[in-house]
Amino acid sequence: METLSRLSEEVGAVLLSKKKVLVTAESCTGGGIATAITDIAGSSAWFDRAFVTYSNEAKMEMLGVSSETLSAFGAVSEPVVKEMVQGSLHHSNGTVAVAVSGIAGPSGGSVEKPVGTVCFAWMDLSGWLKIETCHFNGERAEVRRKAIHHALKELQKHFIDEQGSE
Rank of each mutant, 00 (worst) to 15 (best):
S8H: 02
V11F: 07
G12M: 03
V14R: 04
L15Q: 12
L15N: 01
K20P: 03
V21Y: 08
V21D: 00
L22Q: 07
E26C: 00
E26P: 00
S27D: 04
G30I: 12
G31E: 07
G31Y: 01
G32E: 04
I33T: 05
T35W: 00
T35L: 06
I37K: 00
T38L: 02
T38E: 02
I40A: 06
I40E: 13
G42V: 04
D48E: 00
R49C: 13
V52F: 01
V52S: 03
T53G: 02
Y54D: 09
A58Y: 01
M60S: 13
V65P: 12
V65A: 11
V65R: 08
S66N: 08
S67P: 03
E68A: 15
E68K: 13
T69P: 05
S71M: 08
S71K: 15
A72S: 15
A72Y: 03
S77T: 10
S77Q: 05
S77L: 08
P79S: 08
V80I: 12
E83T: 12
V85T: 12
G87V: 10
G87S: 02
G94I: 03
T95A: 04
T95F: 00
V96D: 09
V96C: 15
V96N: 04
V98D: 08
S101A: 15
I103E: 07
I103W: 04
I103K: 05
A104G: 10
A104Y: 11
G105I: 15
P106H: 14
P106W: 10
S107V: 14
G109I: 13
S110P: 08
V111G: 01
V111N: 11
P114W: 11
G116F: 07
T117H: 07
T117F: 11
A121D: 06
D124P: 05
L125S: 12
L125D: 10
G127P: 10
L129A: 07
I131Y: 06
C134A: 13
F136A: 07
E139R: 03
R140V: 13
E142K: 14
R144L: 05
K146C: 09
A147S: 15
A151G: 09
A151N: 10
L152G: 10
K153S: 15
